[in-house]
Design a binder for these strands. Structure first.
Length: 221
DNA sequence: ATCCCGAGGG
DNA sequence: CCCTCTGGAT
């Protein structure tokens, strides 16, 4: 079995994006994002949780600590108490406070609009940084690869099996095969698709709009 | 029971 | 590479 060429992958990936774009149109960020700082904190809190859960706690959180300066002075325990309904609340509280401190100390109270600087913040990896750059600043220099994007990329075999557990490498694979104009739409549209159709446990292949070009499609019955 | 709109640390 | 952190959803 000859390895698929990048050109073939690109054609398939572009068709995937075109179809999902037609299906979902422009998808908005479901997290509250009044400014880059609040967006950063919200994305930080969103790991292993739904946006709805995050949106329940952020009003209380930002009522107490509205700015980087305020949150930099918060006690981790108090923040943890406020976000306790979220998973991983202790580490998230620690990351939020320490990130705020670093934003004040090193970046003049402004969330840096730069990938290299963003990933220096505690709790911020490439996935979170991509969302902040993308949604907060309109800068698209990568693709936010979370568990959905990762899973779908591999089911569609747009990234080699050896990268299945390495979302950073999956991102590089997608960046190589997808034209830049598609990068921004990938995160939200693929996530929406992942939740609706291509979920982790029981993908609904029988009603999937991509079934005809998916190497992993499973036939009903 | 098992999985999740991740990242840090061993 | 693996593990851990965690509550909520299914």
């Amino acid at each position: 079995m000859p390895r698929e060429t990048n050109a073939a992958k690109r054609e398939r990936a572009v068709e995937v994006c075109e179809r999902l774009n037609r299906r979902y149109g422009p998808v908005e960020c479901f997290l509250d994002h009044e400014n880059p700082f609040r967006l950063l904190i919200a994305v930080l809190l969103s790991a292993q949780t739904t946006d709805a859960q995050v949106n329940k706690v952020t009003p209380k959180l930002f009522a107490q600590w509205p700015t980087p300066e305020a949150m930099a002075g918060a006690s981790v325990a108090d923040v943890a108490d406020t976000i306790k309904s979220l998973g991983f609340y202790k580490s998230k509280a620690k990351h939020a406070v320490e990130a705020a401190q670093m934003i004040v100390a090193d970046y003049g109270g402004e969330v840096p609009a730069d990938m290299k600087e963003l990933v220096k913040l505690p709790g911020v990896g490439r996935k979170t940084a991509n969302i902040v750059l993308n949604v907060g600043y309109g800068i698209v220099e990568g693709i936010a690869v979370d568990t959905h994007v990762n899973r779908i990329a591999h089911r569609l075999m747009l990234s080699p099996k050896t990268h299945a557990k390495e979302p950073l490498k999956t991102e590089q694979d997608l960046l190589k095969i997808l034209p830049h104009e598609y990068w921004e739409s990938v995160n939200h549209q693929w996530i929406t698709f992942g939740r609706e159709i291509c979920d982790a446990r029981k993908p609904k292949c029988d009603e999937c709009p991509l079934a005809d070009l998916c190497p992993s499609v499973r036939v009903a019955g």
